[in-house]
């Protein structure tokens, strides 16, 4: 029953993507858009040749690895900081009183707005790119960890106390595990945000990366290159989300209801 449903879903997915490509091909072949917009054939051709012929300094896998490194470093550091700050705000009234107003003030500012300030303080090196990729992730993880820590069931904490658990153990064995599903939900969104921010990050004096490819394409009016960059960012983003889901399944098995 379940298998059959999976097969059905896969069929629909493949059909939908095929329809998208056909639509794209149709528009770029039979409408005036063909003058300006490259069709799927051209884009896919460039995508394939870019595996062997370098664009700028690297072939496409090189650009991809550079971008991935930037995103993963920014995301990891942001996640750790976000969990610490979020759980602290949720668990301690003092931390909440001190950090929440600042956090609420900075939260709505999009990563792209930080570019000038980040360059001013950290230059145009890699650190700036890590920071720009991390900002969006940080707010997401912090917010989720905060809500998670606030909503820890007080009865579970009382129960652990009755069983003779120390306050330190209660934090590590009750409070933290209680927040993991929330934190993971935040990390899912955070990883996508970081990955999306790579374009902004690579506006800052970059010579390589997927974001740089799009910038470069746009500067040289090479729309095909822009589209290759978009496709790569889209596919890798989808893959990253899938990897996160697998990790979540492993770590939060207790929280997943199976029918």
């Amino acid at each position: 029953m379940k298998k059959k449903l999976d097969v059905e879903k896969m069929t629909y997915a493949v059909l939908a993507i095929a329809c998208f490509f056909i639509f794209w091909w149709f528009i770029t072949t039979f409408t005036p858009a063909k003058e300006t917009t490259p069709g799927p054939v051209e884009v896919i051709q460039l995508l394939f040749t870019s595996f062997f012929e370098p664009i700028g300094s690297h072939v496409i896998t090189g650009h991809l690895l550079v971008s991935l490194r930037r995103v993963l470093v920014g995301f990891s550091v942001a996640t750790v900081l976000g969990i610490v700050l979020g759980v602290a705000m949720g668990a301690s009234k003092w931390a909440e009183a001190i950090f929440k107003p600042i956090f609420e003030l900075l939260r709505p500012i999009p990563p792209i707005a930080w570019i000038s300030l980040v360059i001013l303080f950290f230059g145009i090196g890699e650190v700036s790119k890590y920071i720009l990729c991390g900002i969006g992730a940080f707010t997401n993880v912090t917010l989720n960890a905060y809500t998670g820590a606030q909503n820890v069931d007080p009865e579970l904490v009382g129960c652990a106390r009755m069983l003779g658990t120390s306050e330190r153990d209660i934090f590590f064995r009750v409070v933290l595990p209680s927040c993991t599903p929330q934190i993971f939900a935040g990390m899912q969104v955070a990883l996508s945000t970081s990955w999306m921010a790579v374009l902004a990050a690579e506006m800052v004096g970059a010579q390589e990366g997927c974001g740089w490819m799009i910038q470069r394409g746009s500067d040289t009016l090479n729309i095909t290159l822009v589209m290759v960059g978009m496709i790569v960012i889209g596919c890798v983003g989808m893959l990253l989300a899938a990897v996160m889901r697998v990790i979540e399944r492993r770590l939060c098995a207790w929280n997943i209801m199976e029918s």
Binding site: D153, E155, L156, G158, C159, A160, V174, P177, S178, T180, W254, N255
Partner: peptide, 10 residues
Amino acid sequence: YQTTALFPFC
């Protein structure tokens, strides 16, 4: 407890 208060993550 009436609600059992089991640790759901254990």
